[in-house]
């Protein structure tokens, strides 16, 4: 604080701090608090707002327990409220997306951190970043075209003779998974890259010198060292996937609802912001709980991720 004052003077310092406070308080905290407050109030006609019916309750949150439908998980069929089913689908497929991005990102990150010569690293980073110059909407549409029934992927597979019937890729959650993996894979690559890069190459060589085959060196030396990076990448990819709206909307189908779409429907189609807010907080709280549980299982501390 004193450094800031000395360097920039009173006027600029007040400006910096004022803008930061404005951003945090007015643009982040206040809207969230408003939504949080309204999530406990019923959705009422304007004349009733502030009237005797406008009381706090958990009613909006309880709506997830309505409307049971058939659900099946690993062959067991049971009744589940539709929104809970969607919620579990969202968490399950987000976790799947996280695992797939990890499987793709780890070898790539290792390759970038330890194998590529430093000279060609900037070129490779550029290649990784180029797709980000195109907007997420266009990229998702591109996948829609690639995966289409009469699209290029099916044409390619038919031509090289791997399949003799085109596959209906755009069905169920498959295109959503593909789209989310593609969109968020870099959020996994870079934390892991950073972690592996900080590993002393001598440790990898020492393991090999002691007779370790490559897979054991990864399992015992490189993976444990990269764990914080893997954890922060996973948390990011999972949270971003679970909170993604665009990709499920563009690439999903009616049989593949994402929980964010349910929130959007409450807010924009039912115009019931109160229930929408309640659902949004449910998603936030339950995802946070899920992430904390997984972190406990893998023995990752919050301070590891913050590094």
């Amino acid at each position: 604080m004193r450094d800031l004052l000395r360097r920039y003077g009173a006027g600029l310092t007040a400006g910096f701090i004022g803008l930061t406070v404005f951003w945090l308080l007015i643009l982040v905290i206040l809207p969230n608090l408003t939504l949080f407050e309204s999530s406990f109030r019923p959705y009422l006609p304007v004349v009733d707002i502030g009237g005797p019916k406008d009381v706090y309750s958990l009613g909006n949150y309880m709506k997830v327990f309505g409307a049971p439908v058939d659900a099946s998980f690993f062959g067991i069929t049971f009744q589940l409220p539709v929104h809970i089913k969607i919620f579990f689908g969202t968490v399950y497929y987000s976790a799947l997306v996280t695992v797939i991005t990890f499987l793709l990102a780890y070898p790539l990150a290792y390759y970038l951190a330890k194998i590529v010569s430093p000279k060609s690293l900037p070129t490779l980073f550029l290649l990784l970043f180029v797709p980000l110059w195109v907007s997420e909407i266009l990229r998702s549409f591109a996948w829609f075209i690639i995966l289409a029934f009469k699209g290029p992927l099916n044409a390619l597979l038919l031509n090289i003779g791997i399949i003799d019937q085109p596959i209906r890729f755009i069905a169920g959650y498959t295109p959503v998974i593909v789209g989310l993996v593609y969109t968020y894979v870099l959020f996994m690559v870079f934390p892991i890259y950073n972690a592996i890069q900080s590993l002393d190459t001598n440790q990898i060589e020492a393991a090999e010198d002691l007779g370790s085959p490559w897979w054991r060196t990864h399992w015992r030396v490189i993976l444990p060292h990269a764990k914080p990076g893997i954890a922060s990448g996973s948390v990011m990819v999972f949270m971003l996937s679970a909170g993604s709206l665009l990709v499920p909307t563009l690439l999903g189908s009616t049989s593949a609802q994402w929980f964010t779409q349910t929130i959007q429907q409450w807010m924009l189609e039912a115009l019931d912001w109160n229930t929408g807010a309640a659902y949004a907080f449910l998603l936030l709280i339950l995802c946070t709980v899920f992430v904390s549980l997984v972190m406990r299982v893998f023995r990752v501390r919050l301070s590891d991720i913050a590094k």
């Binding site: 002393d200 001598n202 440790q203 060589e205 020492a206 393991a207 090999e208 010198d209 002691l210 007779g211 370790s212 085959p213 015992r220 030396v221 444990p224 060292h225």
Partner: peptide, 21 residues
């Protein structure tokens, strides 16, 4: 012959002990 196939053991200048074990 790869390092893991040779009857040698190397002690690195910085020792390269595994800090997580």
């Amino acid at each position: 012959q790869r390092p893991n196939q040779r009857p040698t053991a190397l002690i690195f200048q910085n020792l390269a002990l595994f800090p997580l074990m």
